[in-house]
């Protein structure tokens, strides 16, 4: 009898363990994105890039709109003010050792070829130019308009801020907006891909490389609300402005 009872208990335990193993885990329920958005690739018979993607809460992109002259002026003035704050913060030793109003007077209107190391000319300036470009893109400017605005901003910086320590540099005047815009287009595409990954880690890196998407002035964030009923699947996009 004891043996029989032990056997019953053992078998029951084994069945219970097996049943626990076999029970499906309670994964959060989600509908693949391809059931909501039909991509042109899938309708043409190609691989669907939306297949099995997570549903994002927001969709990130870039808007392009017209801007008034006043708005352009305010943007440039705002960036100009920021450069006056950022320059001494980012290069305190240079500003302290080489900066003076006497230098400012002497360097005013001068244009030279600078002899800086490649670190400055090929890394720092294009990176700064790319972030300027992305700032204007976030504010609704087209790519070419963003390049033009970045050119104006960097020229103002070169001729009226940096001359506190050194004369304006030909390479910096050209390379900051131009190489910066080319780099900016690359960062823009990569950041949009990461931000639309539907993944918090992807969004983190997307915002990290393109910080302008974090701020209130970014115009390309769209709330995405999927809708389901018996007959159809659809989505509502909410633009905030």
């Amino acid at each position: 009898m004891k043996i029989f009872s032990f056997l019953i208990i053992f078998v029951s335990f084994t069945c219970l363990a097996q049943g626990t193993k076999d029970r499906s885990h309670d994964f959060p329920k989600f509908t693949p994105l391809d059931e909501i958005l039909e991509s042109p690739e899938s309708s043409s018979g190609l691989d669907d890039p939306n297949k099995n993607r997570r549903i994002p809460k927001y969709i990130y992109g870039y808007k392009q709109r017209d801007h008034t002259l006043r708005e352009n002026f305010n943007q440039i003035a705002g960036i100009y003010g920021v450069t006056w704050v950022l320059y001494p913060l980012t290069q305190p030793s240079v500003v302290k050792e080489n900066g003076s109003f006497k230098n400012y007077r002497n360097n005013f209107g001068k244009l030279v070829f600078d002899k800086d190391e490649p670190f400055w000319n090929w890394f720092v300036h294009p990176m700064s130019g790319s972030q300027l470009f992305l700032y204007y893109r976030a504010n609704g400017y087209s790519r070419i308009d963003s390049l033009a605005m970045a050119f104006v901003s960097s020229t103002l910086f070169e001729f009226t801020v940096e001359i506190y320590t050194e004369p304006a540099s030909v390479q910096d005047l050209y390379q900051t907006p131009i190489l910066g815009s080319i780099l900016g287009v690359g960062i823009e595409n990569l950041s949009m891909y990461l931000l639309n990954s539907g993944n918090s880690v992807g969004r983190f890196f997307g915002h990290l490389i393109n910080p302008s998407t974090l701020f209130w002035f970014y115009e390309g964030k769209v709330r995405f609300i999927p809708q389901f009923d018996n007959k159809q699947t659809s989505a509502t996009f909410v633009f905030e402005f």
Partner: peptide, 14 residues
């Protein structure tokens, strides 16, 4: 023509 000291990356010493 100029000669420039490149011993320090962050500084440009002509």
């Amino acid at each position: 023509v100029s000669t420039v000291d490149i011993s320090k990356v962050a500084e440009t010493n002509i």
